[in-house]
Design a protein around this nucleic acid. Structure first.
Length: 652
DNA sequence: GAGCACTGC
């Protein structure tokens, strides 16, 4: 094999812009003077403040007196729970006592006693729907702001508004990469000197050297395997983490690596090859945490899940392909796309950092150094590349009527806001004057998409609340069916067919759920039927939560008693804009825009033409083609009955 | 005719 040609900045080529990143310690880079928070820092004699300690210091400094609570938000559930556990232990509190957490389906906190409360950003945002001034909190710390999740952005926006009415509320905004001064400006713009904001920059623990490929590679999957093999032959011990964009690439890379195995030289380690992506079972995901056996080196080939969501200790070498699969949303066509695009600079730094968590490491970037100049600084915030229907309904519910005046940290495209409003008006959630309707107010509180909410409400007329509730829960979870590769995959396909309903995927999901419940919600049963126990259990939780909302809204939980026609009519009441017509070549055409649509291979209608020639679908997404997922056959007349507004519009 | 990055309520 030809030697690999890399160069390392600082040793061969010009100095790298990333030298600084490797030295960054966790420290505070910016703060507003004259804030009371500084006294906390002073008490600690300006020792470095570790991020997770901040709420504790505030607690000790008396910020949680008189019934006040210190909140700390995280974009992910695991982070909220694990940080809460750690802090509870450090404070010497039982989890759920002075220190607690609140995530969907799990409230481990005490209304009277909890002083430091960790929650997901979505949960705190939801709390604002009930208590618009978030009046129980004295300090709110928003962590991982650089990730810029939709709910982080919405929270920042409403907190800016809240602070005008309640200046005593202190904010701490913590970000690993975000340009500190611009966010400080965002909050300072119209607030007085009493502002209290700290932005912290967190760094990795050990330096990471960065090496670039001298020539671009035509096939980064193949190259990644080659580099990993080269590391194993020449470099000292330490596990290898490879970043690729998706499952298909991961499997291909593992195959490439497997081919190298017989060529191993005597002094090199044996390799343990592992895949890591969200489609795997929990069991499979856990394997990456097991230390390699003696004489073995782990090679983990992962998607972006390893960039922030899952942290693996002991990684010394990172191989970064420089690309990521990113979702974008086109409001004009309401089409969301999943495309492979170059990573941002921030993302590249983050990936490299994964090599330095337990010792100094090396990151091999599979592109030439000059390419990095073309990278964007950060990934565009989610709010600019997603459907805003639900967020805007919630903002309306918070009394923020003029959405153009809402102070977004980054404003979404105007077209996106308009399209969301249009969708809400069509769905009867917002009236033509832009005000929330009675139904809209209810739906805003209910954690489902607008089209699903419409079905829940119309299930009263079709008398199928019981079934629609299950379908609503099942469409909200991903990766219900786990289909492995190879021979096991074919067997799994056969298992899945046992649940297949002729009418399509929604009824198939319903059958699957009912069977899961009937057979005791067992994990071994799931395994035998190629189902994800995690996904199914989640569906159970979601269903019981939605059930409470239905009861609150006075919606009957009637069963349609096997009358699939009624059930499908009810589906159309929510999906009426997602109709499609079968054409002779096996594809479909959308009723909106006559766009060619391809059935996703997961669908039970992938191999069959629906008798009526018409379907409604849950969602569409563009990858190489435009795919529609979760289909149900319908009678086209039902579209006329429910979608008459659209039909009138299309004729005019 | 053949495929979903990752979160969250």
């Amino acid at each position: 094999m030809a030697p690999l040609t890399f160069w390392k900045p600082g040793t061969v080529g010009p100095g790298s812009t990333f030298d600084r990143a490797s030295e960054a310690e966790e420290n505070i880079v910016s703060y507003a003077p004259s804030s009371s928070l500084l006294s906390v820092q002073a008490q600690r004699e300006r020792l470095p403040i570790f991020k997770h300690k901040l709420p504790q210091y505030l607690y000790e400094a008396g910020w949680a007196q008189d019934g006040n609570v210190i909140a700390c938000t995280q974009p992910r559930r695991v982070a909220a729970t694990s940080v809460a556990m750690r802090v509870a232990a450090e404070v010497g509190s039982m989890l759920g006592d002075e220190v607690g957490y609140t995530i969907r389906f799990e409230d481990v906190s005490n209304k009277e006693r909890t002083r430091i409360r960790y929650l997901t950003d979505g949960m705190l945002f939801r709390e604002a729907l009930v208590d618009p001034l978030l009046s129980s909190y004295s300090v709110i710390m928003i962590d991982e702001v650089h990730e810029r999740s939709v709910y982080t952005d919405l929270l920042l926006g409403i907190l800016k508004k809240i602070r005008r009415k309640r200046p005593s509320l202190r904010l701490i905004v913590s970000s690993a990469t975000l340009d500190a001064s611009s966010l400080l400006e965002y909050f300072r713009a119209d607030n007085g000197p009493d502002e209290a904001i700290i932005l912290s920059l967190e760094g990795r623990m050990y330096p990471v050297e960065v090496a670039y490929l001298q020539e671009p590679t035509p096939d980064y999957v193949k190259k990644a395997a080659e580099v990993a093999w080269d590391i194993n032959s020449r470099q000292g011990p330490g596990d290898i983490l490879i970043f690729l964009t998706g499952r298909e690439e991961i499997d291909r890379c593992l195959e490439e690596l497997a081919e190298y195995l017989p060529t191993r030289k005597g002094n090199a380690s044996r390799l343990t090859l592992l895949a890591l992506h969200a489609g795997l079972t929990t069991e499979e995901q856990m394997r990456v945490f097991q230390p390699a056996e003696r004489g073995y080196r782990k090679v983990i080939v992962a998607t972006n899940i390893a960039e922030a969501s899952i942290t693996i200790e002991g990684i010394k070498y990172v191989v970064d392909c420089g690309f990521v699969k990113l979702r974008t949303y086109n409001p004009t066509t309401t089409l969301s796309s999943l495309a492979v695009v170059p990573t941002s600079l921030a993302s590249a730094v983050q990936r490299a950092g994964r090599a330095g968590r337990t010792s100094p490491g090396i990151c091999y970037r599979l592109y030439p150094h000059h390419v990095i100049k073309t990278f964007t600084k950060t990934t565009p915030p989610e709010v600019t590349r997603t459907d805003l229907t639900t967020p805007i309904l919630q903002l309306k519910s918070l009394g923020i009527d003029d959405l153009m005046k809402f102070e977004w940290v980054t404003p979404p495209p105007a077209e996106s806001v308009l399209r969301a409003l249009e969708g809400l008006v069509n769905a009867g959630m917002v009236d033509h004057g832009g005000a929330l309707t009675e139904v809209g107010q209810k739906v805003a509180e209910c954690p489902v998409e607008v089209n699903i909410a419409r079905m829940l409400f119309s299930s009263k007329d079709f008398q199928c609340g019981e079934e629609i509730l299950t379908i609503a829960a099942m469409t909200a979870v991903q990766n219900v069916f786990v289909i492995p590769d190879g021979a096991d995959g074919a067997l799994a396909e056969l298992e899945r067919r046992k649940f297949t309903a002729e009418e399509g995927d929604h009824l198939t999901l319903l059958n699957t759920y009912n069977a899961f419940v009937k057979y005791g919600k067992s994990s071994s049963w799931c395994k035998n039927h190629a189902l994800s126990f995690r996904a199914m259990s989640r569906a159970v939780s979601i269903r019981s939560q939605l059930k409470k909302y239905m009861q609150r809204f006075g919606l009957p939980l009637k069963s349609c008693e096997g009358d699939a026609k009624r059930l499908r009519q009810c589906l159309v009441s929510g999906y009426w804009r997602n109709g499609a017509r079968w054409v002779a070549d096996g594809t479909y055409r959308s009723i909106r825009g006559n766009i060619p649509l391809h059935v996703h291979p997961d669908s039970v209608l992938f191999t069959r033409k629906p008798k009526s020639g018409w379907v409604v679908f849950h969602e569409m997404e563009e990858t190489k083609k435009i795919h529609i997922r979760i289909l149900t056959e319908i009678d086209p007349d039902w579209l006329l009955a429910h979608g008459h507004k659209f039909q009138e519009k299309s004729r005019s």
